[in-house]
Design a protein around this nucleic acid. Structure first.
Ligand code: MN
Ligand code: MN
Ligand code: MN
Ligand code: MN
Lengths: 259, 259
DNA sequence: TTCTTTTGTTAGATTGCTCTAACAGAAATA
DNA sequence: TATTTCTGTTAGAGCAATCTAACAAAAGAA
């Protein structure tokens, strides 16, 4: 699927990254080690090494150990840096488990633009320099994830005093409305999904995410599902599921993101 | 490069996503529209439609308009939701420009795990519910990015009063040390890169990112570059570049992330 | 030295995705 | 109706990536 920013494929970047990792812990990188670490057959590694050598990213001759060229070393290091940053984003900010994060990071690393990479790095620097933000993520978001079915509002309340805020200031922010309670035909911004894991997943997969603009085309009843319009599409939604969708009061909730 | 979570390739997901987008704004999706929107030749679309039809994701017969099956619609929607979420993360949190964010999001969307997806969605809900966090990102990180060469510490100082914090509380957090000033042989955590855009990019590509563990193997001099160890690799670093790397004081700066 | 095991390469096949060029069908226009 | 334009398909090719099976070379053990 399309090339990475280096002009080489994601697969070749992974080979370079793997060689880098291996050379970081032992003195030589052998075909066998690479195959093992990448979970491919050794017969796949040889032609990959040939492709890399052709592109002048490694020095490779039959049955010899592998050495980086300067350019190859650069790409290898760059790929691993991206991997590490993405992995940290997934674990430290989103709270994903290490193993999952590694897999996800290693898939995504190849396609991040220079710009996004730089900004992600800057975000971590900002986080390290700004204890408030770190605090909010550690004590707000992470805790809120622990009891995943709990209401987000509880989270919110538990943070406010720590932040020296007057809860009353934010009171109106809490006034979320159920999607099913808005006027038919009117359009709102989704604020939150308030459901157990399964229903929540179902709604999110269907595009019911925070910030999305939603129109209630037909309010439902017990037998009749609601009809809502999302991204130009009408979707049917059983009443008891629609009840879980909370929206901002009219005119609030930031701008709609553009699709 | 490996399959997405649906068991179909990223390319096919993109075709579904594109059809979804087109059907969201017009009544039929034609080969020509798909080709145009995806910037591929129409001759590439036909076989892609055949592959999708084979997998029972669309109903397709020669020269006829394309319809989703239930499963196809689901994957299309799911892909677009991922796309939107990632795009929003890149624009709203990292401050990437819209166009770049779209490209990046559309590359990464195919590989995000269910788990990460759910967490990213939850993060936005948290953000919407927690004005403090939103405030810190909008007024802290984004502003700090505007003047990219400015010291992060300035940013930080400008936030503290707004957050009702006593700046003195955080004073020690500011005491960062230049890498070149630490004892040779000792190991520290990188806190920040303090350099212009070009040098910064060079350092970040080389793995000098916040949170990385670094060992100063040899302090340099004006002619002799420093040698530092990162990820098991020795790297040479000209003194004037090494000067830009700031580390936490001994024992501080969180745990090293594991590679 | 000779045999065995480990390691790496090659041959040959398959899948996915894309392209250009040539062609076929449908719709619009004269 | 006849012609032109637009649209979609097919044929044929190329590249990247992976596999299994067979083979070859190198290293280690007897
Ligand atoms: Mn990877
Ligand atoms: Mn990786
Ligand atoms: Mn995509
Ligand atoms: Mn996309």
């Amino acid at each position: 699927m399309s090339n990475s920013e280096n002009g080489i494929t994601g697969s070749l970047e992974d080979y370079l990254e793997t060689i880098y990792r291996i050379l970081g812990r032992s003195s030589v990188a052998r075909v066998r080690d690479i195959a093992e670490e990448m979970k491919v057959s050794p017969a796949s590694v040889t032609p990959a090494m040939k492709r890399l050598a052709e592109k002048k990213l490694i020095k490779y001759s039959k049955r010899n150990y592998i050495e980086f060229t300067e350019k190859g070393l650069f790409i290898a290091r760059r790929t691993m840096t991206r991997h590490n940053l993405l992995s940290r984003f997934l674990t430290e900010i989103l709270g994903i488990n290490k193993e999952q994060a590694e897999t996800d990071a290693c898939s995504m690393e190849h396609f991040l633009s220079e710009n996004s990479m730089e900004r992600l790095a800057a975000f971590f620097e900002f986080l390290a320099a700004c204890p408030d933000l770190q605090f909010l993520i550690d004590n707000g978001f992470s805790k809120c994830l622990e009891g995943e079915t709990e209401q987000l509002s509880r989270c919110r309340w538990s943070i406010c005093p720590l932040m020296n805020h007057d809860p009353d200031d934010n009171d109106k922010g809490l006034e979320l409305i159920r999607l099913i309670d808005i006027d038919p035909g009117s359009s709102r911004i989704i604020a939150r999904i308030n459901a157990d894991k399964q229903v929540r997943k179902q709604l999110i997969d269907s595009g019911f995410i925070q910030g999305a603009n939603i129109i209630l085309s037909r309010p439902g009843s017990n037998d009749l599902p609601c009809i809502v319009k999302l991204d130009g599409y009408d979707q049917e939604l059983p009443l008891e599921i629609a009840e879980c969708v909370l929206v901002h009061p009219e005119g609030e909730g930031k701008h709609e993101y553009e699709k």
